[in-house]
């Protein structure tokens, strides 16, 4: 419309998915703050948000890593619950001193996550199963084992030390938030600064070219799904710590949420493109939206409706503007 060239920084901001997302995050924050200023902006709300989002944000990180290779991990919630249940059973069935037992349980749950991820990786890399199918089947097995181990009821009576991870603050910052920040930073560095990260993104962008470039595709895929399993186990521990119990059907809505956040964060579900900063911004937008809607008295079901619509809306916007 105007003969002058558009101001470059702004057009670049709108041109990248992360830039658009930054605008969405700020807009949601401002709108929610304007609609209920004294409650949304209160210190109590800020703290409670910081305790809430790390668990599903870590699942979204797991989803992001697998999506970057053009795959998907539908078993993350199953892995999270199974590993939490194994940890909870160790803590409630065995006797021992508090800290040692908690550490043993945490190690065991991380082990479950790694093994579960290894199973996914082997199914995908060695057998050549499509990731959707492999993780759909293994997810049923993990959830099924969690149900079979507990008979479907919650494992309760965890030692008090376990509650620390999900509910304490370190240096005034909620511990789950610190955990998420470290993981996000670590994965971001891994993706951009290591050979593994580069091969991973290269494979996602063009699997055939990666194969011809003599990249060890099988080994790379196994490591990706092992990493995803381990992240899922960490998320499971946070959920267990905050709920002070473990159950086979906790966080069942988190699978959709994790996919939603990854896609919202600009990760291309066909693989090859995605940045952790985008995922972090997407997590923040979702949490602002979620808390804000909660304060406005919107039901959980309406939130599901809004999340689904947002997912589709973002897909439409990201697909219609081809990335340069």
């Amino acid at each position: 419309m105007t003969p002058l060239p558009a101001p470059r920084p702004l057009s670049r901001l709108i041109g990248s998915p992360e830039g658009r997302l930054g605008i969405i995050a700020v807009t949601v924050f401002v709108v929610m703050a304007a609609l209920s200023p004294d409650r949304f902006l209160s210190a109590a709300n800020m703290t409670s948000m910081a305790f809430q989002f790390p668990e599903f944000a870590i699942l979204a990180l797991a989803m992001t890593v697998t999506m970057l290779t053009g795959g998907i991990d539908l078993s993350v919630v199953g892995i999270a619950n199974l590993s939490a249940i194994v940890a909870a059973m160790i803590m409630t069935r065995l006797t021992g001193d508090g800290t040692g037992l908690v550490l043993l349980a945490l190690a065991a749950s991380l082990g479950v996550g790694l093994l579960a991820g290894l199973l996914n990786g082997v199914l995908i890399a060695a057998l050549g199963l499509p990731p959707i199918l492999a993780t759909l089947g293994s997810g049923l097995i993990f959830t099924g084992l969690a149900v079979a181990l507990t008979g479907g009821s919650a494992v309760m009576g965890l030692p008090p030390a376990m509650a620390w991870i999900g509910n304490s603050t370190t240096l005034g910052i909620p511990t789950p938030l610190i955990l998420f920040a470290l993981l996000a930073l670590g994965i971001s560095l891994m993706l951009t600064r290591t050979a593994f990260g580069v091969t991973l993104r290269m494979y996602g962008a063009n699997p055939l070219a990666a194969r011809f470039a003599a990249i060890d595709v099988g080994g790379m895929l196994v490591r990706v799904y092992v990493l995803s399993g381990a992240l899922a186990a960490v998320a499971g521990m946070l959920v267990m710590s905050r709920a002070n119990s473990a159950k086979a059907d906790y966080g069942s809505s988190y699978l959709l949420l994790a996919v939603l956040i990854a896609v919202l964060g600009g990760v291309n579900p066909y693989g090859g493109y995605g940045r952790i900063i985008g995922v972090v911004l997407a997590v923040l937008s979702m949490q602002f939206l979620s808390s804000g809607l909660n304060m406005l008295g919107v039901s959980n079901f309406a939130r599901e409706l809004i999340w689904g619509s947002l997912l589709i809306f973002v897909m439409i916007v990201n697909t219609r503007r081809p990335r340069a």
Partner: peptide, 9 residues
């Protein structure tokens, strides 16, 4: 996945 939650919601 999106329409699943839209229809249900």
């Amino acid at each position: 996945l999106g329409t699943l939650s839209v229809f249900r919601g």
